[in-house]
């Protein structure tokens, strides 16, 4: 199969993720959408790696996974502490600071 099709899929997944970040209100769901964007990047890396016939892209996919895991650790810690003090993980409720 033509690797370019995987690039279209990656771009589609990335767009779904970005749209989700913008329209969803729950911090956990927003965060999951960010993870979807990172995975779309991984797919693009691997597809380009196949296209060019070198391994750089596949190596980067591993690094991305590690970074995404680290981000989950930090992100969930922050979101859970927010949830415990407010009993809500909505990003709209977090508005103590105004312009």
């Amino acid at each position: 199969m033509n690797p370019v099709n995987y690039l279209y899929l990656a771009a589609l997944l990335f767009t779904i993720g970005a749209t989700g970040v913008l329209i969803r209100r729950n911090a956990i769901v927003v965060f999951m959408c960010v993870e979807l964007m990172l995975n779309a990047c991984n797919l693009a890396f691997v597809a380009f790696s196949r296209l060019h016939g070198n391994l750089d892209g596949q190596i980067i996919a591993f690094f991305t996974m590690v970074v995404a895991a680290a981000e989950v650790v930090v992100g969930l810690a922050i979101i859970v502490s927010l949830f415990r003090s407010r009993h809500s993980a909505s990003v709209d409720d977090a508005s103590l600071m105004k312009l």
Partner: peptide, 30 residues
């Protein structure tokens, strides 16, 4: 509460921005 709110905002927006950076890196690599 202010501090936690700041952290959530910084984290979500920062992760969002770094996902865009990563996609940019993928395209330039491509």
């Amino acid at each position: 509460l202010l501090s936690q709110e700041a952290a959530v905002k910084y984290f979500l927006l920062g992760a969002f921005a770094s996902a865009f950076t990563l996609f940019g890196i993928a395209l330039v690599y491509g």
